[in-house]
């Protein structure tokens, strides 16, 4: 059994008072809490810190730990409690793992006996433990949000087969409801990690990530598409074909349109959950110059330049 020096884990002296222990725990908990730190290993570190705090904040547990620390001895890499310690400290089940507990074997050998189990928040639970919830990212194409969509989810779980913990690949077919949005989480009951020892399995949470579309950007329920137009189409107006998620449509560009003008196409955005109601598609005009040109087009541009007498930077001269 590996010995855990809870004082060392919290970075405090063995004579530290409760206030110092609490302060050390808070600092480390803030640093390694899995909700604040997504780095690999942070969660394990947090559990270690929480376990140390669980023992050191409690007078009785701390006294028991101090006794073990003082009189136990180290053999090779392992640790052995002092002779007779197990019997003297309740009905602990030596060598039996406390599945469902997030605490170490060392902790369970000290405090995890009987019908009680502790989780890493120090709650004593008499009920069966529950498997861990699992969250995975679920890429969804914009087109797939328009209707309920069956998708296959593949992920890996750890399962205990009675002897050891093994990775298991899971395949699920999940119906993603119409109108899901970026960042949304959907819960699939009972498809998380199984509970060791026959408890209820955890849940699976699918974190929806809308796949960036090559043409459309998402703004709430609205979609934005950049509409490239030739300078003469912007000047004279035109009928153009614009893509939507549900096929092409015809759109009229008014004469004298400016770059950046938005044309709103009602109901061609993303759908709202539960109702068929949809946002709009906004086509943003981008004036694109034709590449190069020949003598004839050059002459036409020159003629235009002379007759239009247009200064696009007139605002600058007014400002200076």
């Amino acid at each position: 059994m590996e010995f855990k020096d809870y004082y060392k884990i919290l970075g405090v002296d063995e004579n530290a008072d409760n206030k110092t222990i609490k302060s050390a725990y808070r600092k480390l908990a803030r640093k390694y809490h899995p909700d604040m730190n997504s780095e690999e290993g942070a969660e394990d570190k947090f559990k270690e810190v929480a376990e140390a705090y669980e023992v050191l904040k409690d007078e009785a547990k701390r006294a028991e730990f101090d006794e073990l620390r003082r009189y136990g001895h180290f053999a090779g890499n392992g640790f052995e409690p002092p002779p007779g310690w197990q019997q003297a400290h309740g009905s602990r089940r030596q060598g039996e793992a406390q599945f469902g507990s997030d605490f170490s074997e060392f902790f369970n050998s000290m405090f995890g006996g009987g019908s009680h189990e502790f989780d890493f928040r120090g709650q004593t639970r008499q009920q069966q433990s529950r498997g861990r919830d699992v969250e995975i990212e679920m890429p969804v194409f914009l087109e797939e949000t328009l209707n309920d969509k069956q998708k296959t989810v593949e992920y890996q779980l750890s399962e205990f087969d009675g002897r050891q913990v093994k990775p298991v690949k899971k395949h699920l077919r999940v119906t993603i409801p119409q109108g899901v949005t970026e960042g949304e989480r959907i819960r699939v009951k009972g498809q998380g990690e199984p509970a060791m020892g026959g408890g209820i399995p955890g849940d699976l949470y699918l974190h929806i990530r809308l796949v960036p579309h090559p043409l459309f950007d998402v703004q709430g329920r609205n979609l934005v598409v950049t509409l490239p137009v030739a300078p003469w189409e912007a000047a004279l107006g035109a009928k153009v074909t614009v893509p939507t998620l549900e096929g092409d449509i015809k759109l009229t560009i008014k004469p004298n349109s400016q770059a950046g003008n938005k044309l709103r196409i009602k109901g061609k955005g993303l759908k709202r959950k539960g109702s068929g109601e949809a946002g709009d598609l906004l086509a943003v005009i981008k004036v694109v110059m034709p590449p190069g040109g020949n003598k004839e087009t050059q002459a036409l541009w020159e003629k235009l330049s002379e007759s239009a007498a247009f200064d696009p930077r007139s605002e600058w001269s007014n400002a200076s």
Partner: peptide
Amino acid sequence: MTQRALTVTVT
């Protein structure tokens, strides 16, 4: 070990 696809609903 791989398990067969199972159809589940969102709750």
